[in-house]
Write a protein that binds this DNA or RNA. Sequence first.
DNA 1: ATGAAAGCGCTAACAA
DNA 2: TTGTTAGCGCTTTCAT
Lengths: 373, 373
Amino acid sequence: MQTKVGQFPRSEGSLGIREVARHARVSTATVSRTINGIESVDRRLAARVWKSVQELGYSPNVFARSLASGRTRLLGLIVPDRSDPFFAEVAQWFEETAWALGYEMLLSPIGSNVERRSYFIGRMRERKVEGVAVMVFDLDSALIEEFSVLKVPIVYVNAGPEFADATTLSVNYWYGIRAAVQHLASMGHRQIAFIGGQNLRRSSTPKLKAFIRATQEIGCVPWTIEIDESFEGGIRAMKELLDSDVRPTAIICSSGLVALGALRVLDQTGVDVPKQMSIIGFDDVPFAEFVNPPLTTIHIPRRDLARLAVTTLRALIETPREHAVKSSWEVPTSLIVRESTDFLAGSALSKSSIHGSAALLGVQGAVILEDCG
Amino acid sequence: MQTKVGQFPRSEGSLGIREVARHARVSTATVSRTINGIESVDRRLAARVWKSVQELGYSPNVFARSLASGRTRLLGLIVPDRSDPFFAEVAQWFEETAWALGYEMLLSPIGSNVERRSYFIGRMRERKVEGVAVMVFDLDSALIEEFSVLKVPIVYVNAGPEFADATTLSVNYWYGIRAAVQHLASMGHRQIAFIGGQNLRRSSTPKLKAFIRATQEIGCVPWTIEIDESFEGGIRAMKELLDSDVRPTAIICSSGLVALGALRVLDQTGVDVPKQMSIIGFDDVPFAEFVNPPLTTIHIPRRDLARLAVTTLRALIETPREHAVKSSWEVPTSLIVRESTDFLAGSALSKSSIHGSAALLGVQGAVILEDCG
DNA sequence: ATGAAAGCGCTAACAA
DNA sequence: TTGTTAGCGCTTTCAT
């Protein structure tokens, strides 16, 4: 019989379930059952237990609990970069939703280098995540391999391989981009350019496709210009556009930052937005509404996306995986009209009530155009 | 002798330290020592162990590890609101620093309602945090009480009680605000207003004091206007200022959002920034540099603050607490000059090289004025 | 330097 | 319904 001491000062006087049990004059099992809300416990005993818990100031040790139960209630979320405001917000909603369902989030901003990636993968393994949401497009197959070894459910969000049985969630850019194009067309714009590019999110392709389809739909020639998706990219593209013989009258940017860059050039060049040029961005960036003029943006439902990821994961985890069928879900985008878009100058069309009402809502007001689908 | 089954499907084939030990033909103790990098292990045995770890794809169970060792290596960080970009960034640096030192962060965005607060406090207790950084000013004493029961080290960051023995870190606003006032004064401004207020951060008072002292220092009368610290607050204050008989020529805002609000009003009123009015904000908000014109801001060293919090906590945790002395640290603020400040129109002063060089740095360039202290 | 074995605090059979 | 008890997977003494 040895008395364990340990190098590190343990929490005071080992206040564990045993002390509570002794104090309440019941067994540890009863304490455990009470704390975990198991019905079968006698009301009077339960009351005694809770009282002891209070008096002693007991709080269960999650580590012991996980070890004993074999459950961790941990959900992994793999993103490229936590400092990107888009992923930051998604992560926040993911965590919030997870909490609401009794889970924890383990965030893995794996970046781009391989060491960092396997570090985070290892971390998730050590902590025994029960499921993982993958939000990076180019997670290499070796890592995916490593994961499948774990045999935990995975959902791919707006990314990932087209496994026959992979569960996927995706953002439908078509709705929002089509709404944007039609919004512009309805105000007389025919020369609409799209500034897009490639980045970590790799959502460029679907956005581009949607733009092309939407412009063709209204009988216009798609006008696109590719850049790296950033503030500087927006600056370069806008300069290029301004230099061309015939200027577009409206521009859709593939991200909020790109739009901010475009706006900068326009401001410096003295081009009035929206009178001389209309700009539409994405709300993947905060402060789109605090900028001058407030940006008309395509809204990505980050919160819905995050929630869907968590709930899907939970379903996968808690459902006996007898009939694991491929399932895929989609969240729609929409258009938020603010003040960076207006009627084409010299257009025969006059101000419609839609835009008028947007202005009426005041500085932060916005009218949301649902998808036209 | 019973074979444990468990309700929940456990990780495949119980790949634990025992399997590794068997595979490497050593004891579990040796495996443990090897994995934890304990020197005394024979090189050849260690090699065998690592090989087995590789081949088996073993990764230790953190829960068991924590349970056995009595250490959690968890650091709590209490903030009001994780969606505030300031705290979001601090939290990120906190976590990053913690990782670098082998710790984890447990974030508690306790908000304002009591239930939420005690929920997060409870969470930290359950998880046995080894130390806590408190970044909220008005953590009520009851909660502090609850914490002191845990007997874990606490550092108060820019907040908290003035316990005789409390460890505190704080932001020195004096340097940055003084630099801002002097920057303006050097460009001929004498009518400088300060838009400030109160918010969760409660950093208003030190900021206000610093402003008053700095303006008096240059022989000006402090001109302050109080609002709630927000975008709308900035709008209201700016409107009020524009309506007054005599307008200020330069304005320092107590936060980035307030500055954005002020900028909005100025833009709508057709007041040119910086030609007709200079604006200075705080960089507690991203995109201050992406706005038009790029905002001259007072820089708060969020990263240093977070790092200091973590390293201080670690020192407190890992140092035998024999002589626990009160200690306090400070991080300085500084001024980042961009393009929202300029010479007073009609001033006898001409453009100095300082501002000229800022312009030369281009769209995103900035010259940092260190504290004048 | 290595191994045997006693727990860490809890959960969940199983028995009562 | 309640209690007894065998682990969960690891660390760390203690003995070798």
